[in-house]
Amino acid sequence: MRSLLLDRASFWYPATESPTLRDVSLDVAQGEVVALVGALGAGASTLLLLAADLAPRVTGGRLAGSVARRDRSGIVLPTPWTQVSGMAFTVWDEIAFGPANLAWPAHEIARQVDRALEQLQLAPLASRDPATLSGGELQRVIIAAILAMDPGLVLFDEPAAELDADGAGILWRLIRLLAREGKAVLLATSALDALPDVADRVVWLEGGAIRAVGTPDLLADVATCDAGLGTSIATVWRAAGLPAPYPLTVAQAVRGWR
């Protein structure tokens, strides 16, 4: 079942003449992970704001086409320090900020917060002051804060940007878990090497329009590698002058080499 449907959506930010998104049609089903890839300025963040119902409602601007959402959405923005409520003494309180705004009963808030703490392996930090956390810890807290609100459609904008390798590993496993629970996940990321294991579909955005849609194999395509959007292995294979098809992962490269 579709959780999000964009039909020929174009979007203009306020006081701009050319659209940031042009004729984008995309659907994300429940239980599916869709990754947006593209160069800077390709429109991935704007597409997420559109999906989160923040654009144009909060950002202003103009939308043409339609955006339909079946589920409540939650978005993790790329800078964790601007997403902290500033109203919490502890990490637990920070994560509870969103669920409390949904006016849930206290026992349900506690259940969701404890679950999110466990999912992000944040239980040891539960009583820490959010102001004392590192960037990576804060990013995990913000992700937990969004998940504690139990959104059906989860949107991530560069979620691994502040995370170390361990933190990123926890995140990618969690995203697959969210999909197994039936949530729809749409993420914009430049961590291309993680996508073969995480994403069901990859959407290549260029200049605000969809250039290609496909399985993660798209990240080993000649065209995507030419645009700098291939996985590390595909890029190295190509740089070495080895012939296409390029391998997507290390395992594929080993098989191809033999």
Partner: peptide, 8 residues
């Protein structure tokens, strides 16, 4: 944007 998405 962040406060909006967190239900405020």
């Amino acid at each position: 944007l962040a406060l909006e998405t967190r239900g405020l």
